[in-house]
Nucleic acid binder design. Structure first.
Lengths: 223, 223
DNA sequence: GTCTATATGGGGATAGAC
DNA sequence: GTCTATCCCCATATAGAC
């Protein structure tokens, strides 16, 4: 393991930005606040990142790269285990959720901050985030899409899209909700139990994905 | 039906704010932009709403009141149908999702804007939103919590909390994703089909909520 | 209720010395 | 690579005339 040396200015800015963006949102966090927290000079942001928008991209890229790489790696492993047959649905889901949710464990507080960020990213307005999401997830989307189609051969593609959409929502909310769930469960649920979270999320979603396709109900009211 | 008269300044501001908040987020939308779009004077915001924060609350309260009222009404109906037995899970879910998702139909574009807003609200940072959520949903949360416990008598309460959490995530993402899903499905999914959306969401989530509780797996790696 | 004008503060970005 | 100083713009909020 690499010795933990004094982090560079660039890294301190990334760390501070990650934390503050997670706590207060992007628009509400000023570069001045970030550089103050990072014990760096205001101009350093523009020197290292050129603009606030580029800083945001850098914050995401730093963590999302490794996460997505690990996702693809786990997916390959589970496809290898399946041989020529369809991969097991639960394993595909775990390959997708595991790396993201385990960030909170590997990086301690920093990882938790990033989890919140990642979850919020999906709902963020503006074209900037839209395009970032598409870039970052392009390959992962294709590969996991294929795997899910194979794991659920009976499910019509349109229905699969819908269900993947629901699934991403559940994941995003689980990521942001690290501090939400204990609140409304009266402390009964503990999101710091990462493996428990993954297990619960996977079994919930696997059941949802396997649900029989609901028939178009006879139109009872023509509202 | 009430005649559609020229809306008052107050209403025009609410409409414009709703749309612009939905499109660009809260922090990124200035009162100047809002009043310009509403063809109102900048000072009118402070006259009618006192502050930007209060304006945000007003935007939510205007729609959420009726939605929650309708939710409780539908829940009562479905409990009445069940008599003394447990209510049917699918009906409980539909009572919860239906009113929110049907906003997009009843109010046309305005409703779609509000859907986006409502979905994003869950992920919004800051204590202000946290407390708004709790106020607005206090009664609904209690009543639907009870109903779900009755509909799923076998499920341990802790697991129910987790699953409700996942469920809210799927709903929030469905609300915000009105324009997201058609994009990545290549136009194959049509969120303007409200009843289809409700039906799909309900059957997906009902299956997830009914999933067998995953056993704590034997720890294979002590990572 | 609606306007103009303004108070007051903070934002992102950059020039140029060191 | 890091700093100070500054440009220029926009934000919310309010005072006070109409």
């Amino acid at each position: 393991m690499k010795q933990t040396e004094a982090p560079s200015t660039k890294e301190r800015i990334l760390d501070a930005a990650e934390r503050l963006f997670a706590e207060h949102g992007f628009a509400a966090t000023s570069l001045r606040t970030i550089t103050a927290a990072a014990r760096a000079n205001l101009a350093a942001v523009n020197y290292h990142f050129h603009s606030k928008e580029a800083l945001i991209r850098a914050v995401f890229a730093r963590r999302l790269g490794p996460v997505n790489q690990q996702r693809l790696q786990l997916l390959e492993a589970c496809q290898a285990r399946a041989g020529k047959g369809p991969p097991r649905l639960e394993e595909v889901l775990e390959a997708f959720f595991g790396p993201a949710l385990r960030l909170g464990r590997g990086l301690a507080q920093s990882g938790i901050n990033f989890q919140r960020l990642m979850g919020r990213m999906y709902g963020e307005p503006g074209e900037h985030f839209r395009s970032m999401l598409q870039e970052q997830f392009a390959e992962v989307a294709v590969r996991f899409g294929e795997a899910l189609r194979k794991a659920l051969p009976e499910l019509p593609p349109v229905e699969l899209y819908w269900r993947v959409h629901f699934m991403l929502g559940a994941m995003a909310h689980t990521l942001t909700g690290v501090d939400y769930l204990p609140l409304f469960s009266g402390g009964q649920c503990d999101p710091s139990d990462v493996e428990g979270t993954v297990r619960r999320l996977v079994s919930f979603l696997a059941a949802g994905l396997r649900a029989p396709v609901a028939p178009r109900q006879a139109s009872r009211s023509r509202a």
